[in-house]
Design a protein around this nucleic acid. Sequence first.
DNA 1: GTGCATGCAAAGGGTTTGCACGCGC
DNA 2: GCGCGTGCAAACCCTTTGCATGCAC
Lengths: 122, 122
Amino acid sequence: MQARNTRQKQIVDKVMGKATRPLTVHEILAGGKKFLPSLGLATVYRELNRLVETGEIQTVTIPGDPPRYEIAKQHHHHFKCTKCDNVYELEGCLKEITKLVPKGFKAESHDITLYGLCRACA
Amino acid sequence: MQARNTRQKQIVDKVMGKATRPLTVHEILAGGKKFLPSLGLATVYRELNRLVETGEIQTVTIPGDPPRYEIAKQHHHHFKCTKCDNVYELEGCLKEITKLVPKGFKAESHDITLYGLCRACA
DNA sequence: GTGCATGCAAAGGGTTTGCACGCGC
DNA sequence: GCGCGTGCAAACCCTTTGCATGCAC
């Protein structure tokens, strides 16, 4: 069952690729409908899940928010503006995070989310 | 509309207070039913939402997991074991986190979640 | 022509809400 | 007795799934 490169999939990829910040499912659907009005929600979900499984995109989960999706890239973290609700990508990471790991525990990965005001809202 | 201190509410508080780790809604309901079998899911949700609003408890959100709840306490973070799926509380925090904030942004708070193996599973 | 991908609609899981009953005051 | 809190069931929202159609090859 080799994947077919249909118009729908190309459009989901295209919308994702253009994004400068993580997008919600509905933003992706709305963006895709501009190119193919018949695009369905189920197809967007199916394509997103496929892309997550193959590791091409990543899910960004912010408590209280719907999931967002972004092109997979180097390890990084996120900043959620509490005023405009946009989510931004942050560069860098903290090696000091190992200090939090209790004795006997073995950390493999981590997520960091910052909250506050973005440049435009501050 | 001053709140009444009903049996149901006392039981939700009691279950939360006994917990040594964040609990899911269904764990709280199951725990409460041991004391009051007629306890309903809607009441648990209503009481939890009230306690979150008053700041008495906090929601712990782990991507891909149902929300958990814990008694509000000093600032801390969480560790999710990828094998047994339990969530543990971590002590301490990282002042270095300010290094991640971009210029012009104003950070107010943050969440850190570690993933890996707990002591029992490592 | 064959078969997978799509769109629709229904199903599913988790959470909230409307309503009538009954307990707490 | 009055009114809020409760339990039930329905409603909601988000996501997944079943199925018939139709496009890609």
